[in-house]
Write a protein that binds this DNA or RNA. Structure first.
Lengths: 221, 221
DNA sequence: GATACCATTTTGGGATACCAATCTGGTATC
DNA sequence: GATACCAGATTGGTATCCCAAAATGGTATC
């Protein structure tokens, strides 16, 4: 594994895990020292993370992208379009065996599973479902959208009932997909995405003061 | 304007204008000499163009992305999803004055307009229409998809009737959008995209031999 | 003539040196 | 005490080295 990919991967993890806060300034020299790499791979990593929307330019200099509520709403609209299109493709396919793998993913979570794992599986559900479409561009769009949403979802205050409801919705989407019921499956998926967005934005807007107190830049809608 | 942005812009133009052929090998040193920049900005440019899909890694080393017919078909599905979603948003908006600007764009082309300009305006029509949605992600998705399609459309053998038909379809889409008829507008848009894709892929598949003879790598569907 | 092999060159990945722009902290001035 | 200003430190942008790996091309061998 090259240094460049290492820096990119580790820095992305730090950002997604909120070990560097949204809105925080980044200097190439700090990253250089932090990961023991020189500026060449650091710069490459920053350029790629910029296209992922995780870091941005702040005049001269780099900044961890703030949480932007308006952006989160736009991403929800975007992912609804691409996820629905992907799911429609999947419903039209004959082979539904791959759906079992995704169902097993959901099964792997129970009350003993750490919160972090629930978080990851909840994202991977959507990503893997999109992958089944066989369309590389729809897949990447969903994956990138989930990456952009990741930090915000991690900050969201979610109660147990909300988590349970999301899981039920995931299972209902899978069930309809397995039967090839495209209209029903996409209707459920749309509703799921819209509901998730509403809960997410509401939660963050309510917590905005607290999040800023923790040093996280949160831009209003 | 920094060197980095210059190299990126100029190299992108060379690739899109087919001044470096699809499938051609690129060396960082050649680009360095060609544009009079050092390797640092050259590498930054390559990293960005990679995310745009215009260049790719070929083991160790860089290659101008070949024309890939299977990819073109997938992009058509992708752009249909995002363009339809964007258009639906636009139809729901009260202010339709911006549509006149796009209509004027179409008007600016007549029989004296160079082919290159028709080509550009045909792309910008879709990009600017998506911009009206106000959703940054749908807009970028359309813009990036059109960038990826650009070279292929340039290679397409298009007769006058096909160009004229496309223009009529563009106008019909605008007309329905202006009236806020979302279902009709998106139906027309979908048909337009599917039709364009079919003509494009058919044309390239037929010309494949000739294109390869010109040194352009064309990957089959 | 085909092929295995080795020396040379070329290439991308990485490290580092340098620069101009900018930021910072302190100081002198009023 | 506020402010204008200047010197030093910091930073991203760029150029340039170095290196290991891979491609290249010529040659000896069969």
């Amino acid at each position: 594994m090259s240094q460049m990919q290492n820096v990119e991967r580790q820095l992305r993890e730090m950002i997604l895990a909120l070990e560097v806060g949204p809105g925080e300034r980044l200097t190439e020299r700090w990253i250089e020292g932090r990961f023991g790499a020189s500026r060449t791979p650091v710069r490459a990593a920053l350029l790629r993370l910029e296209t992922e929307g995780l870091v941005g330019r702040d005049g001269r200099g780099w900044t961890v992208s703030p949480i932007n509520l308006a952006e989160l709403e736009q991403i929800a609209v975007y992912r609804e379009a691409v996820e629905v299109a992907a799911l429609r493709l999947t419903c039209g396919q004959a082979d539904k065996s791959a759906i079992d793998v995704i169902e097993a993913m959901l099964d792997s979570c129970d009350e003993n599973t750490p919160r972090e794992e629930w978080h990851r599986v909840g994202m991977d559900f959507h990503i893997e479902l999109a992958r089944l479409s066989g369309n590389e561009f729809l897949f990447r769009a969903v994956r990138d959208a989930m990456t952009r949403l990741s930090r915000a979802r991690w900050l969201e205050v979610r109660d147990e009932t909300a988590l349970g409801r999301a899981w039920l919705e995931h299972r209902a989407i899978l069930a309809a997909t397995r039967l090839g019921q495209a209209d029903e499956a996409t209707r459920l998926l749309s509703a799921h995405i819209v509901g998730s967005r509403n809960r997410l934005v509401t939660s963050l807007a309510n917590d905005r003061r607290g999040l800023r107190a923790r040093g996280f830049a949160v831009v209003a809608a």
